[in-house]
Structure formats: C-alpha cells, structure tokens
Simulated scan of single mutants.
Amino acid sequence: MAWYQESFGNDYLVVYKHRDLQGAYHEVKKMMDWLDLPQGVEVLDLCCGMGRHSMALAEFGYEVTGVDLSEVLLDEAVKQDVNKQVKWLRGDMRDVPLEQPYDAVVNLFTSFGYFDEDEQNEKVFHEIHRLLKANGRFIIDFLNPVYVKANLVPQSERSEEGLLIRESRSIEDGCVRKRIVISQEDGPDRHYLEQVKLYERASFETMLRKAGLHIDDVFGGYDGQSYDAQTSSRMIFVGHKEG
C-alpha cells in the first residue's frame, strides 16, 4: 500500500487538528485576487483533504467541487460542511472521475509530488489541463524546496488528545520525508510516513509547459510576495490553460 493510502486516515485528523478554517479563509482570500474570477463560477479543489479550502472557496461565492482519495478525510469534510455548500467526490488526482471542465482548478497545501515516478506526478498537471475550460485558471501551491532544505526541523514532539506525537523529518532520495510515531499508554505505537518529491522551480515550469499550462505568476507565500528561492516558504504557481 502506498504511503498516502495509509497516512490519510483517522490519525491524520488528530495530527493535523490544529489546522483551522480561519487560516483557510485567510489563504483563500488572497487566492481570489489571483484567480480574478467572478462569483458563481465553478472551481475544482483537487486533493481537498478535510475540505477547509473548499468550504472557504464556497463561502466566497464559488461553486465548488472537492476531490480526494481518502474516504476518511472526505467523510470529515462532509461532516464539517453542515450547509452542504460543496460537492464532494472520491478520486485519484491522476485520473479524476469527472468530465465537465471547470473555470479554475486549485491544488493547495503541498498536495503534489506524492508519487515516486516523475511521469506519475506529471499526470496530475495533464489532468488539471483536461479539467480546465479554455483559458481556465489554476493555482498549484507547493513548498519551496530550497527553503525546506535550509530550514528543516529534524525532530519535534507534542501531545494531542492523550497521544504523544513524534515527528522526524529528513531529505532522502530527492524527497522530504516525515516519519510520524503516535504513542498512547494502552496500545502499541502507530507509525506513518509522509513523503513529497522535491521539485525546484525550473522542473515545475518544464512540467507545466509540457501539460499546456501557462504560468502567469509565482508567489512565495499567501501574502502575495513574489517568489524568492532563498527566503520564500512556499512556491505558488498561478496561471491559465493555453488555448
């Protein structure tokens, strides 16, 4: 079983409990300016996870569909979406079970680079191209690999709901890997791996171009600052489908 099939389960909800809707609203507010689209248009949130950004996009007036592979995370999204603002759908980001094109596709919070082979990761960009209307807009929000390598925190631990969560991080085989150990008094330790393949800007640009996606801007954070390889924590590509 691939790491992402094991890791995005019930324990993930506990490990990332601290990520709140308010933060998602703040991030999405700036993204609305980047998308420059009127309210009411259709937006696909590809790899929506627990749905924080999907629901924020819906609050701002978009018609939103959220797609994710994890049934656990989708169930949590449905639970949080009390007003049924978003359409939720289970699917693999390389082969999304949708035919209709969207005005915009967003892939947020480092939901890319999950696969070992470059060609599998590139399939995601070709799917984004397929799912966009002509001149449709996209946002791909990735980590900045240069910054990650320079600022990696090797070890950390914290307590959450009576659990001890220990996280170790390393750069191996061109990937940033996080190993998570969850301990509790009355049971064995539970182990998880999270892994993202590190692609620098030039590689991203090549892959996007091959997929027929044109880059309009590259931002270094949710505040809209231009990307700087040494100082930016994020690498956020904003652009449109060519033709």
Rank of each mutant, 00 (worst) to 15 (best):
K149W: 03
R137A: 09
W88G: 12
L13F: 08
G66Q: 09
S233N: 11
C48H: 02
L69F: 15
V196Y: 04
R94S: 06
V106T: 07
T231I: 03
E119A: 11
G239E: 09
V78S: 06
W88A: 13
G91N: 08
D189R: 07
G49W: 02
D173Q: 12
L193N: 09
R209H: 08
F219L: 14
T231R: 09
Q5N: 13
L98I: 13
E161F: 09
I182A: 14
E242Q: 05
M55L: 15
R177E: 14
V176C: 05
W88N: 09
Y102G: 03
Y12G: 11
L193A: 06
T231G: 01
E99N: 11
E117D: 08
C48P: 05
D45V: 01
H129F: 12
A2P: 15
Y25T: 00
E42P: 00
R158D: 06
Q120K: 13
R19S: 08
E99R: 09
S233A: 12
Q22H: 13
V153K: 15
Q155K: 12
D118Q: 06
L57Q: 01
D95H: 14
L44F: 07
Y16M: 03
E127M: 04
K197R: 15
K29A: 14
L73E: 07
V15P: 01
V86Q: 07
R90H: 02
Q184W: 12
E167R: 15
V218F: 01
D223T: 08
I180P: 05
R166Y: 13
A202F: 08
S54H: 02
S111T: 12
R201V: 07
R137D: 03
D103H: 15
M207Y: 11
E172I: 09
K17V: 01
G224M: 01
F109Y: 14
M1Q: 08
L213P: 04
E161T: 07
V176M: 10
G113F: 11
D228R: 12
L208P: 02
S111K: 07
K210T: 09
K29S: 13
W88T: 09
E71T: 14
Y114D: 01
H129D: 06
G49C: 02
E185R: 14
F204W: 12
V176T: 07
I236T: 07
I215V: 15
I171R: 13
V105Y: 05
L131V: 10
D223F: 08
G49V: 01
V153I: 15
D95M: 13
H240F: 11
W3R: 05
R201C: 06
K87G: 00
M1G: 11
E161K: 15
R169L: 00
V67L: 14
D103N: 14
Y147F: 15
D81T: 04
H240A: 05
F142Y: 11
V96Q: 06
Y16G: 01
Q85S: 15
G162M: 09
A211H: 02
A24C: 07
Q155L: 05
I180R: 14
P97F: 10
Y227E: 09
G224A: 02
G66Y: 06
L108K: 08
V15H: 05
Y192T: 00
K149N: 10
D223W: 02
F60C: 02
L69R: 12
S170A: 13
V218P: 06
G162C: 07
D141L: 03
E119R: 12
I171L: 14
G221A: 15
R137N: 10
L152Y: 12
R130Y: 07
Q230P: 00
D118M: 00
R166D: 03
I182D: 10
S168D: 06
Y222M: 02
V86A: 05
